[in-house]
Amino acid sequence: MRRELPRVDLQLEESFNDAEMSAGVLEGRFDLAVQRLPMRDARLATQVWWREPLTLFLPAGHPLAHPSEPAPLAALGQIPLVIWPREVSPRSYDEIIALCHGAGLVPRISAEGRSVQTLLALVAAKFGAAVLADSHRALRRIGVTPRPLADTSTTLHLVWRADDTNPLVERLRTVLTDARGRV
């Protein structure tokens, strides 16, 4: 982005709260959001930007942490889960619960956390396992072993106001889309 739009001042704000990100776009606090599960609202425009596998983050030493092949969905019934509170990210919470139900499981939730770092700390403390996007393995949390979750994926979306006519927002979306194609 810096190469393509060198005079644009990019200010990043980190959030793991999908509702907060979508609301920020609607309220004009953010021109563009990159998020997994945007709010469903006709005033928001979305574009699929990136797909990645979901990963089961397990306490190091847990029996499920050792096999090298992807974990089956049935593994979600073999360990309690640490998860986002539903009020923080209803769609993410629902996505994980739906995975469990799709596998015929009733999830056992042992703890909730409001950030990726908190969820991974709870996993390291052996509260249970977390289902997160695979890219979070780059955090390399001590005491946590990531294992791909078979036949699952999640999607990142670019999100902006549907009525936004700012040409820089459109150009930024193009730059981000083109950059994704080169990865």
Rank of each mutant, 00 (worst) to 15 (best):
R3D: 12
L176H: 05
A45Y: 00
H62Y: 07
D94I: 00
W50G: 00
C100D: 08
P167H: 10
L122H: 12
S89R: 07
S89M: 04
L132V: 13
E27N: 06
R180T: 08
G77E: 03
L139Q: 13
E170Y: 01
I109H: 07
L158S: 02
E20F: 08
V183M: 13
R91W: 02
T55Q: 09
E14A: 10
G104Q: 12
V123S: 11
G104M: 10
V169K: 11
L37G: 02
R137H: 14
H157L: 03
L81S: 09
G143C: 13
L168F: 04
A130R: 07
L81G: 08
P85N: 05
P67K: 09
L149F: 00
P90C: 06
Q35H: 03
D163W: 07
P70R: 11
P90F: 01
A60T: 15
A150H: 06
E4A: 15
L122V: 08
D18S: 14
R36N: 09
V88T: 12
E69D: 05
L32A: 00
E112T: 15
R141C: 13
L5F: 07
A19Q: 13
A111L: 11
V116H: 10
N166P: 10
L5R: 14
E95C: 00
A98C: 01
I97K: 02
I96V: 15
W50C: 01
A19N: 12
Q11A: 14
D178L: 11
A130C: 10
Q117F: 03
T145D: 10
P148K: 04
A179H: 14
E69C: 01
R147M: 05
R141E: 12
L105F: 08
G102W: 03
L81T: 07
P38D: 01
L149N: 05
G77P: 08
V106G: 08
T118E: 15
P146W: 05
D41F: 04
A138S: 15
T118G: 05
A179P: 12
I96D: 00
A19L: 14
D151E: 14
E112R: 14
A124N: 10
R180P: 02
S115V: 05
H136W: 15
S92R: 15
L32I: 06
D31V: 00
T155S: 09
L158E: 03
E112N: 12
E52N: 02
P67R: 11
A45S: 07
H101A: 12
P146V: 08
V131D: 01
H66D: 05
P53S: 09
R182P: 11
L26K: 07
D178I: 06
L12K: 09
L44T: 03
F127W: 13
A162Q: 14
A74E: 13
W84C: 03
L149E: 04
V106T: 15
N17E: 12
A129S: 12
A121N: 14
I96R: 10
Q117E: 13
A19T: 13
L105M: 08
R86G: 01
Q117T: 13
A129D: 09
Q117V: 11
M39H: 04
S153C: 09
